[in-house]
Structures are given as structure tokens and as C-alpha cells.
Design a protein around this nucleic acid. Structure first.
Lengths: 372, 372
DNA sequence: CTGAAAGCGCTTACAG
DNA sequence: CTGAAAGCGCTTACAG
């Protein structure tokens, strides 16, 4: 910042070549003599040259196209999309554009695979997607990710991961952590002395990790909380509701029920309300669906743990922009967004108004010249 | 994004003048004929011209200097500083630099006034600060803010506001909201049926607003919670402790105590611990001081409401950068950061590791060429 | 394999 | 008050 930045010209002077040659050495395209390259790179290191991406963007006419491949099935995913859009607006000056490729179902990985294949083939050579941001619906999406990577397209996963794929990194929830936070709420509300029930879905890795996190924190920090019984369900609302009803009816000593999915917790909360046990039995929800908010305000659900979907999209896109513009590899493979605790819907709406929008509205193009 | 952006040249062509003249009309400096100006501005609106700040930064040699005037007395303020630094690194390409001017006390507004006056006078004409980000320690700082504004220096307040000053906007906590969230936690933990005590400091406007928010939400959402008694203190730890001890001793029916400052809540938490009443009487803390974290893990404090100091600094600096680079006035006067609920110190540390750093590490200059 | 030159969109002296 | 020209640091054809 303080000192004048070293430019291509400085390197060219020092290495006694033309700036065109330096450019070729640095950007590694076009034929170049190995020895010339070596000398130039040495000067680059010596003088601590960093490319000026302002200048390169100005000259380069290529725009960077990014595709966001994600289901568009509910508010949560739409917040991820919003976040990604905002991040890309931040890079508007650098000619980055985002194209959303939405899926209409979370249960159709085949459809997603097709969408990705199509995205890889679209456009002529100069108009191809430089990067794909994907919320992989299933492990089978890995093959599409690897195919994209093989073609030189950068891939980042968001919200859901494809662990053994060639994606650069993952941005999203840490399921273990959300489980742990819910355990802490249980422990504190129940004053570390109560029996609880666990209703567990095992269909996704992240669901299993939530339960693990929940159990681990209970064991470590709240040994006064005893898990009296465990039941399995499919992650659905209906079964969770039925299980909760029978637990509430048959086991009056149970004072808390944990379910490891959004849908499951909605089922439990509804059961608590229907059995007129709110305030007596606690549930803590995942994410912030409308039904969850209602149950939260009715105190059938004590709190909800939300994972900043907006930030997930925002940072996934920001990482992608940096990869494309600066050829920077992300420093970490796993980028976890914070898990926040919400106790009433007003808190959430107020926060949405501020923190999200403080990141949003600021990014909007607003021009002093034309006043819009 | 899609269409080719309109440039100065396009306007010049349309208005039948040179690009130099268009520049003068748009940037409003240098003599220009009123009629010419009118015609040009009309074309600017018609064609929806937006200046390319990439190009202008490249040509313009001026760097933008921003000063952050803030006490450097604890971790909370240091997070604000970190946030501001990160935002400015984001604008590194645009030749923005941040200079921190720290105060060593929160209780010495005179010293801060001197620091601001000095900052305004430093440097020659071309090297002056373009913007000041200030955490005003007292209403008297208003005069320095107005003086800066009169000299054409942009001012944004952070964390603390100077309401009737000429600052462009405020970025920071919404005290009313934090009070309200704490009320919600009380209401839910106490199952909307209990007597509580309120210990109130009135020394700062924001403290009073916290109490107001607390009382309002209790009244609206938790009518089963009764405020049995109110006491006044100076916002200090010691008095709060003494008051809490006597409340806990004399009024066994009290099941929650609210204090409206960080220090006050630490006093209460300690009293709850000393009187061996943890889990029986609840307190909810402000912010995230180390003592608060300890009391949180001991369950003397049930939760703490934290206000994202990192984001406060980050967004205050980002707004300032936009003001300087794009001559954009902020759309709102008050930018509130979200108030998050923390139930254990592990949650906070994990979140700090992710959400802050997801905003941080990404911004760090990291170069594919030189690998650092 | 390397160099010289044009030009991205803007701002800034310098002439008129 | 207005225009013509140079140049910010880079990339990209185009010659050699």
C-alpha cells in the first residue's frame, strides 16, 4: 500500500526482456524459453511482484461466467442463491457474472447430473463456464464434478458436500456443531438434570453427524442429561410426529426430544403443541422454515439453530471469484458458516434486515451520478 | 453484466463533445458551461451510464486514506479494528489504505477530540484523510465530526453513535434489540411464569435503550414474567454484584436478574455463583468478554448476546470505501449488525473460526505466482 | 521463442 | 470553457 507496487515493466527491466515476455512467463501460456522463464520468475520473487488485477481486467475482454447448480425448492436455498448473487455483484467491476441453474427437486440427483453435463457443454470455447458452484444432492454427483474438474472448470460445493470429489472446497454448515449447540441448549434449559428422547434419521451423512455432535456434547458437558430412549425415522415430519406423540403419552418423565432434521423437529414441535405440553417438554429446531418460526413463537420449540444460508452462498461465490480472478486456491477445504441461535421470529426478521442486508444493500450498484 | 457497458466515449459521441468534457460534467470539477452540462447529464441518464471505477482507479494516482479512531482497550474493540482492516484489504486494488488511531481509554473524550483534530491536520493537501471512521466516546465528539464534515472529510460512526452530528451513517449494535432478545431468553427459560429483578444503569443512551427493549418485549410477549423490583447502578461490576447478592439473599422468589451492561452482568453472574444459585437464577450477558465466557460455561450465565464487532468494523469500512470510490451515499443512516445468542464458549470460538475467518482469510492477498 | 504496438476506460496536465 | 493527447498496468493480436 505504501510503496509503489512493482509492475510488469519493472520485472521486464530487471530481467532485460520485454513486458510481453514477462507476461508469458508469469501467466504460463504461449511458448517460452525455459531459461528465460527461470530468470524472469526469479526476478518476480525477488521484487515481490503481484499482478494488478485491475489493469488485467480492464484489458482482458473475457468475462468470467459462474454457474450455481442448486435446488430452488424453498426459502433456505433461495437465501443461498441471494448470497451468491450479492457476492458476484461485488465483483461486477471484474466482469464476473452468475447464472443460476435451479433444480425443482431435492430428491432427483439424476436431474442435477443432467443439468451439470449441459452446463459444461454450453457456449462456445470462449464463453464456457469458468466455475461451477454446486449443492450436490447425492454422492453420485461426484462423477460430474470430477468431469468438470478434468475439463479445467473450477468446482466449489455449497451447503452439501461431495467429499471424495475433485471440488476445490466446501462452504456450508458444520452438522456436528449444530448438534452440539442443540445439546447445549438442552443441557442449559433442563438445568443439566433430565431424561430426554432422541429421534434419529440416518439417511444422510450430515444427519448422522448432527446426532454425533449432539451426543458428544451431552456426554462431555451435560452428564446430568440422560438419553432414555432412541427411535429411528426417515427424516420426515409425519413419523417424527407419531413417535413424539407416543413418547409424550407413554413417558411422562421425558422433558426433551431431539430430532436431527428440520422436518423431524417440526413434527415434534407440533406434537408438543397438540399434547398441550409446551413449556414442559423442549424441542430445538434446525434452520428457519416458516412452520418452525410459528412453533418458536408458540414456545413449542424453544430455539432454532440457523446456519446463515445467505453467507453460505455469499462466501462460496466469493471464493469462486478469487479462484478465477487471482488463481488463488482456497486455503482450507472446509469453510463452515457460523451456527446462530434464534429464540423468536422477531429476532430473525430483525437480523435479516440488518446483517444480511448490511452485506446486501451495500453491494447494490448505486450511483451518485444517476441517483439509482 | 450482459450488455456492453456504456462508457464516457459513448456519452461523448451522443452529446457531441469530447470525453474530457463529459468527465468534467460527470465529476463536477472544473469550469463547464451550464447548458453543455445539462445536455451531457441528460445523455448520462438516457444511456444509463455508470462510471467504471476500475479504469478510474488505474489512471488516478491518488490513494484514499481512511482513519479509524477508536479505543484499543479490549478484545471487543480489537475485533472491530480487525473487521475494518479486512474490508480495506478487500479494496486494496483500489488503492485504499486504513490507518488506526487508537485511544487508550474509553473515558477520555478529550483525548479522542485531540486525536481527531490532529488527524484532520496531518499530511499535505493531496495526502489528507478522505474519510474518518469514529467510535465517539461522548456527545462532545460531535463538534469534531462536524468540523471534519465541513472540511469535506467523510465520517461514519461505528459501535457508538453521535446522533445529531454530520456523520453520514452509523454502523453498530441496536441496543433496543439486544434488550429484547434477552427478554425473550428470560421469558422462555422461565416458561413465562416468574418474578425477576432489574438492575439498571442510565449513564448512556444505549444503556437506557437496552432496558426499554427488554421491558417492551416482556410486556408484549411474556406477560407471565413480573418485574418485582428495580435498582439503579453505575454500569459497574461491583455495585451490580452487591445488589445481586442482596437480591438473592432477601428475595428467594426471584428467578432472574437483568442488568443492562456487560460489567453489570458479570457482577450478577459472579453473585449467582458465589451464592450457589446457578441453574436456579438466570442471567444473560452482553457481549463476549472472557469473564462472561467463563461464567457462561459454569452456567451462572445462561447465554450471552453478542453483536458481531468484527462485522461492525467490516461494514463501516466497506461503506466508507464505497463513499470514497463511488461517491455513493449510504442508503440508510442506521446500519444495525445482528445480535447473536451464544450458549457456550465453544460455540463462539468455533463460530469465530468460521464466520469471521471466512470473511478474513479470503481477503488476504495470496498470490498464485509467488505462493504467498 | 520474443518484441513492439495498440488499446481497455478513465483522469490529468497542457493547449487553445 | 473545451479539446487532443498522454498514460495508468496489463493483455492480445501481429510481426519477426
Amino acid at each position: 500500500m505504501a510503496d509503489k507496487r512493482v509492475t510488469l515493466k519493472d520485472i521486464a527491466l530487471a530481467a532485460n526482456v520485454s513486458i510481453g515476455t514477462v507476461d508469458r512467463a508469469v501467466n504460463g501460456k504461449g511458448r517460452i524459453n525455459a531459461e528465460t522463464q527461470r530468470v524472469i520468475m526469479q526476478k518476480v520473487h525477488e521484487l515481490n511482484y503481484r499482478p494488478n488485477k485491475i489493469a488485467s481486467t480492464l484489458r482482458r475482454h473475457k468475462a468470467y461466467k459462474i454457474a450455481l447448480v442448486i435446488p430452488d425448492t424453498n426459502h433456505f436455498f433461495r437465501l443461498i442463491i441471494d448470497g451468491a448473487k450479492k457476492a458476484c455483484e461485488d465483483f461486477d467491476d471484474y466482469a464476473v457474472s452468475l447464472h443460476v441453474i435451479p433444480q425443482d427437486s431435492e430428491e432427483n440427483p439424476q436431474g442435477q447430473l443432467r443439468d451439470i453435463a449441459q452446463a459444461m457443454d454450453c457456449g462456445d470455447v470462449s464463453d464456457k463456464y469458468g466455475g461451477l458452484i454446486i449443492a450436490p444432492l447425492h454422492a453420485s454427483v461426484t462423477q460430474a464434478i470430477n468431469e468438470a474438474a478434468a475439463r479445467g472448470i473450477q468446482v466449489v460445493t455449497v451447503n452439501m458436500d461431495a467429499k471424495d470429489s475433485a471440488r476445490m472446497c466446501y462452504v456450508g454448515q458444520d452438522p456436528w456443531r449444530t448438534g452440539g449447540i442443540i445439546a447445549s441448549v438442552f443441557g442449559k434449559f433442563l438445568n443439566n438434570a433430565a431424561e430426554i428422547a432422541v429421534i434419529e434419521a440416518k439417511g444422510r451423512v450430515s444427519w448422522q453427524q448432527r446426532t454425533e455432535g449432539f451426543m458428544d456434547v451431552l456426554e462431555k458437558d451435560f452428564q446430568g442429561i440422560r438419553v432414555a430412549c432412541m427411535f429411528e425415522y426417515q427424516g420426515d415430519r409425519r413419523t417424527a410426529y407419531d413417535l413424539a406423540i407416543s413418547i409424550l403419552r407413554d413417558r411422562p418423565q421425558i422433558r426433551g426430544i431431539f430430532a436431527n432434521t428440520t422436518e423431524g423437529t417440526i413434527g415434534i414441535g407440533t406434537a408438543i403443541l397438540d399434547m398441550n405440553r409446551k413449556g414442559k417438554v423442549i424441542a430445538v429446531s434446525y434452520d428457519t422454515p416458516p412452520e418452525g418460526m410459528k412453533l418458536l413463537d408458540d414456545n413449542a420449540i424453544v430455539a432454532t439453530v440457523t446456519q446463515n444460508p445467505f453467507l453460505q452462498g455469499y462466501h462460496a461465490a466469493k471464493i469462486m471469484c478469487r479462484i478465477l480472478l487471482e488463481r488463488v486456491l482456497p486455503e482450507k477445504t472446509m469453510w463452515y458458516t457460523s451456527a446462530d441461535l434464534i429464540v423468536n421470529s422477531r429476532q430473525l426478521s430483525l437480523n435479516a434486515e440488518s446483517v444480511n442486508h448490511i452485506g446486501c444493500e451495500l453491494m447494490q450498484p448505486f450511483c451518485a451520478v444517476c441517483q439509482r
